[in-house]
Design a binder for these strands. Structure first.
Length: 542
RNA sequence: GCGGGUGUAGCUCAGUGGUAGAGCGUCACGUUGCCAACGUGAAUGUCGUGGGUUCAAAUCCCAUCACCCGCUCCA
């Protein structure tokens, strides 16, 4: 039986293992960091969640903010795409550079854009000259020079007669270390001027790489997608051209994505291989705020409809300074997972207003924010650093008689995180019950919908129970169990989160009724055995 | 990435150099007439992995992997 002394998350992990919800990947070989497997119950649970999303968002979406219908279509694109997709989306640049972080002010600097200035006391040729420190700047233009001079004066006020001696670009770690004589802890942050707050330069390879083709070289290097969204954007024109969709409409996709997370942790919450459920919703720019608010609320309510009803679920609007450079609004749907500190929430889904950033990126090439405007990122030769597709991804609206680049609202959900939240929310301890641990899954998500038990495995009870079980099985995942005591069988179903158990007893032979036991209350009622499917249909479609 | 902790049966854990253990779970048989019941019996271990010390290692040493906690990170 479960040990109820450990912390909640440990007990949930133990139950997930014990009942076959989640296993560590490659466990017999010692496991592999950041990867998890779903067992027989877990796969049903996660599939039910994904099916609910697909049904509720794609096949049977809600009405729009104006009470009118809008179109939603699906997509399933390849995990490996043309490398240029990631160069234009910005993923490649952001995570293939050497980066330096300031641990004080949390600024992050590209190592190859960082300049370091040596500051010494005394005048030139002064044999008593002493090293005061190193000042880092972004770039080495006039602004940077003015900045570093001001900072040097301030620094040297404490130590009289300071001067700038040398400046160089921190283009490689070796040069950086050598030129600082390994005194890298004397380098001051360009942003907050804190000394010694830099991490060592680190290479950020967020994307997992592979090679398409038998020869492993730079020419055929490819990336496993870090998000499913880009596959939607690059198919935008295909969908428009072939599927008779009209704005506003959405394209949905779920599937595996991969990120080389620095610190995979917290059970399945941050994994290197994970599954996303993403929608890109395309609309006229003038209506984008309205659709953003619409999707934010629709998505939040979706979680509550699946039983995430407690105060542990919340909607959090991002602050202005928290927004990505292209976003005009983002909300996170968050859950207070048991492994987080009190008051902390973890992201289940981000709903972002992305403007026309993505479609323009795939037309014009990678975009950067310059003075509040998105412009193509230019290389040293003045040409776009990463060339776009050059394809026209604008849309002609026949009613408005207007051509424009649609704006995008992106509800981006984590299927594994939602599954984990559902598990955590369902986990209940009630020590007054003979079986103190139970999983109170929403009936729609429960991996097993019903179990059928002969009270004892004799006196003709199995003969009555088996046909009932086989009838249920045609429509819902169900289990039949005739072994061991009835209490043990109920307890097993409680841990699996099965909402209903039907038991055939002595009275069944007399009047044809069976008992139905409710998982959450333990209460029983009798119904006619012919009404079992009808009963389930009514109870499960909530 | 840094610091601390933990790895022994499916789960929870005991076992500080000398035969691999317990409770629960699982399975079988019997019993059982509604909530992890009882009886009898059974199966289950690369003691995380690799190396070293030793006549002998779950136990001591080194390395490594995984998980947990705290920082860090999370486009």
């Amino acid at each position: 039986m479960a040990n109820l002394n450990g912390n909640v998350m440990e007990r949930i992990v133990a139950l997930c293992k014990r009942r076959g919800f989640v296993f560590q990947s490659s466990e017999i070989y010692g496991g592999i960091n950041g990867f998890w497997d779903y067992g027989p119950l877990g796969v049903e649970l996660k599939r039910n969640l994904k099916d609910a999303w697909w049904l509720d968002m794609v096949r049977n979406p809600p009405l729009g903010p104006d009470g009118r219908e809008f179109q939603m279509v699906g997509l399933d694109c390849s995990i490996i795409m043309h490398p240029q997709v990631w160069k234009c989306s910005g993923h490649y640049d952001l995570f293939s550079d050497m980066m330096v972080d300031c641990q004080k002010c949390k600024s992050r600097f590209r190592h190859d854009q960082l300049y370091v200035w040596e500051v010494r006391s005394g005048l030139e040729d002064d044999p008593q000259s002493k090293l005061i420190g190193y000042l880092a700047t972004m770039g080495n233009d006039d602004d940077a020079l003015a900045d570093v001079q001001a900072r040097a004066r301030k620094l040297s006020k404490k130590i009289s007669g300071g001067r700038l001696l040398d400046q160089w670009q921190a283009e490689s770690i070796i040069a950086y270390r050598t030129r600082c004589n390994n005194n890298t802890d004397l380098v001051r942050c360009p942003s907050c001027d804190e000394q010694g707050s830099f991490t060592t330069p680190r290479e950020f390879n967020l994307m997992l790489e592979s090679h398409a083709g038998p020869i492993k070289d730079e020419d055929n290097r490819v990336f496993l997608r870090p998000e499913t969204a880009q596959g939607i954007f690059v198919n935008f024109k295909n969908v428009i051209d072939t599927c008779r969709v009209k704005l506003p409409f959405g394209i949905a996709q779920m599937g595996k994505s991969f990120r080389n997370e620095i610190t995979p942790r917290n059970f399945t919450f941050r994994s290197r291989e994970f599954e996303q459920m993403e929608i890109e919703f395309f609309c006229h720019p003038s209506e984008s705020n309205r659709w953003y608010e619409f999707w934010r609320d629709v998505r939040f309510n979706w979680y509550t409809s699946l039983g995430l009803k407690s105060a542990k679920l919340r909607l959090r609007e991002h602050d202005k300074d928290e927004l990505s450079h292209y976003s005009c609004g983002t909300s996170d749907i968050e859950y207070a997972f048991p492994f987080l500190a009190d008051g902390d929430f973890g992201e289940l889904e981000g709903v972002a207003h992305r403007g026309d950033f993505d479609l323009r990126s795939h037309m014009e090439g990678k975009l950067v924010n310059k003075d509040g405007k998105l412009v193509p990122d230019l290389g040293p030769d003045g040409k776009p650093k990463w060339k776009g597709s050059g394809k026209d991804l604008t849309y002609f609206d026949d009613e408005r008689k207007e051509r424009f680049t649609p704006h995008v609202v992106e509800p981006s959900a984590g299927a594994d995180r939602a599954t984990l939240a559902v598990i955590c929310e369902a986990y209940t301890v009630d020590e007054s019950r003979p079986s103190p641990e139970l999983m109170r899954f929403h009936p729609r998500l429960a991996p097993i919908k019903a179990a059928v038990f002969p009270l004892v495995a004799k006196d003709g009870m199995p003969e009555i129970a088996e046909p009932i079980y086989r009838d249920i099985r045609k429509r819902w995942p169900a289990q039949y169990d005739a072994k061991q005591s009835i209490g043990k069988r109920y307890a097993r179903m409680d841990e699996a989160g099965t909402p209903f158990c039907f038991t055939i007893d002595g009275q069944t032979k007399e009047d044809g009724t069976v008992t139905v036991r409710d998982r959450d209350t333990g209460a029983q009622e009798r119904i006619d055995k012919s009404r079992v499917s009808e009963y389930l249909a009514a109870k499960l479609n909530v």
